[in-house]
Simulated scan of single mutants.
Amino acid sequence: MGFFSAIFGTTDNTQLVEAIKEGAFLVDVRTPGEFASGSVKGAVNIPLDRIASQLAQFKNKKNVVVFCRSGNRSGQAQSILQHHGISNVIDGGTVGNVKECVG
């Protein structure tokens, strides 16, 4: 989710919804404390600062959705993963946005 789409509400979640329906690997990149306060059903917690050391968990996944509190860390996580050759990563933005898409 880009900065302007977040502000102006022009986010198209079609790709995100489809990926979730197809069983995407949902990754909450917030801290363990934030994750413990509630997340998306079925999501795993891999904090942003551990993404690069946990690359094996992302291998062979059809789709990966990363998300956080504001959308900033998820964008960083997407960049890190793509830098390491994992191209099937969707920035889900906020935990609330992903929750809405999970239904």
Rank of each mutant, 00 (worst) to 15 (best):
V65P: 12
S74R: 06
A52K: 14
A56D: 14
I86S: 07
N72F: 04
F58P: 10
G38Y: 10
I80A: 12
S53K: 13
G9P: 14
R30T: 03
T14V: 06
L48S: 03
I51T: 08
G42W: 09
D91V: 08
D12G: 12
T94S: 15
F4I: 11
D49E: 11
G42A: 05
L55K: 07
V44I: 13
G23S: 01
S5Q: 15
V27C: 09
R50S: 13
G38V: 02
V27G: 03
E34A: 04
D12Y: 10
G75P: 13
S5G: 13
G75K: 12
S37Y: 08
F58K: 01
L81R: 11
E34D: 13
F67W: 07
G2W: 12
S87P: 03
Q54A: 09
G9F: 02
E22C: 08
D49Q: 06
F8K: 09
G9T: 05
F8G: 10
A6G: 15
D49R: 05
N13T: 15
V66S: 06
D28Q: 05
G42T: 03
G71N: 03
I20Y: 10
Q57K: 06
R30K: 09
V40Y: 06
A6S: 13
A6R: 02
H84T: 05
T31E: 12
V27E: 11
T94Y: 02
T94N: 03
